[in-house]
Amino acid sequence: MELSPLVITLETAGAATVVTFFAGIGLAWMVVRMNRLKGLADAIITLPMVLPPTVVGFFLLLLLGKRSVLGKFLLQWDVSLVFTWKAAVIAAIVVSLPLMYRTARGAFEQLDPNILYAARTLGASEWRIFWHILLPNARSGILAGLVLSFTRALGEFGATIMFAGNIPGKTQTMSTAIYAAVQANDYALAFDWAMVIVFFSLFFVVLMNWWIARSGKGGCLWN
């Protein structure tokens, strides 16, 4: 069995999750503090979660493809995204971001606002409040978001195949490999990849549950 789909999947999901983690938390904190246009901002960030992934991939093609304004601009620097590993990462980011954003936002909104007010009246800068109060106290929600977005990125299919294609050894991930195997009538291979995905997803969700249970009270993750 050629192992490249596994490596590519883990690399893509890993790289995408790093971006999603920070962007999701940042967006959540931004939207929580918004007064006007909060609903609209929330809807735009959440949209990739409710749209069919093929639609997301299609828009990414339109937005970043070689014929688009942005794509032409990038070509000047010899950067072409479509059907590359980078495209697979971008697709995974866009579909997993809403999960990170929504769970982080939920965790922030559950915090007692008095805790943040108290920190402000005690003179702590917003930056210090974010790192020392907000993140540690929203820990379990943020961990859940991290695992959910990573597992979502692991299993990403629709947007990836539209935008990054299914090039073995280059952009073929486990889920696109299953699709290719079934089309080639190789059910044994499809089954193997399916089991690998089930194993990884199960492993990370169990890990998340254990992690959250352990960090329930006073446990320290950030400080």
């Binding site: 007692d112 008095n114 805790i115 007010y117 108290a118 920190a119 020392h132 109060i133 540690p136 106290n137 820990r139 006073g218 320290c220 400080n223």
Partner: peptide, 9 residues
């Protein structure tokens, strides 16, 4: 604050 608002972490 009424609920003291100590930082739980």
């Amino acid at each position: 604050f009424q609920n003291y608002a100590l930082f739980p972490n």
